[in-house]
Design a binder for these strands. Structure first.
Lengths: 126, 126
DNA sequence: CGGTATCCGATGCGATACTG
DNA sequence: CAGTATCGCATCGGATACCG
């Protein structure tokens, strides 16, 4: 087949919606947050302690996005000062399996990537 | 950038190297480019035709990154005006399987995500 | 053909300050 | 405790122009 048929008629390309969804979930912090929530449900400041490098702004943003996409549930516990607990949804867990596979791949191929980078840099850098 | 405070904190989080590698490969265009090169080796302008929405700047950047990370090979054919062919490396193919899984997941879960978004927006929007 | 160089607006993210 | 609001910088990425 030629490229035009593959692009417009054949199997789905990486559709716009795909990219959009992946961007929502594979951003700088969401993956890490999801991973931590898979270990156990956590409160907001608990997450900050577990991920010391995240700012509250970014943590809030990541949690909102994950919540909006149905990856985590936000549970408000009405105590004197309110408590909020975040927990991974069933949907979020299905993603986690894939992420684990992806990270496993990254771990395994890392050495080869490192070699490729050195070869590239040596050839182009000087 | 910040220090590797998280890296020393205990068990491996989603390590810095993981994030870095994923960022290199899962960015806006690299995934799509890799996918197209998996179908068949392609030339630069051929890729632009197959992915009409990418600017040459972004395509160049994506290709360079993929090449540097050992995901694609750049083959220069010394004709009158030079021809350059890009093809997926063996390493790149191992990634493709995972990407397919990820896109498959995105396709399957998309409806549920859509519902989650509508519920979220309805509750928070007004 | 296969790029590079430059400008420039949009977005991401951290730091900081404030709030119910 | 669990956020919101604002700032300011850095990076991303499209548009345009030029080059071997």
């Amino acid at each position: 087949m030629n490229e035009t048929t593959a692009a417009q008629a054949g199997h789905p390309p990486i559709a716009r919606e795909h990219r959009e969804l992946l961007d929502q979930v594979l951003d700088k912090w969401s993956l890490l947050v999801l991973d931590r929530l898979c270990e156990s449900p956590r409160r907001f400041n608990e997450l900050r302690r577990v991920i010391p490098t995240v700012s509250q702004k970014s943590l809030t943003a990541a949690l909102r996005r994950l919540e909006r996409n149905g990856m985590v549930d936000r549970v408000v516990i009405a105590t004197r000062p309110v408590a909020v607990e975040y927990r991974v949804s069933a949907l979020g867990k299905t993603l986690q399996d894939l992420v684990d596979a992806l990270l496993g791949w990254a771990t395994v191929t890392m050495p080869e990537v490192e070699r490729a980078r050195e070869a590239f840099d040596a050839e182009h850098g000087e």
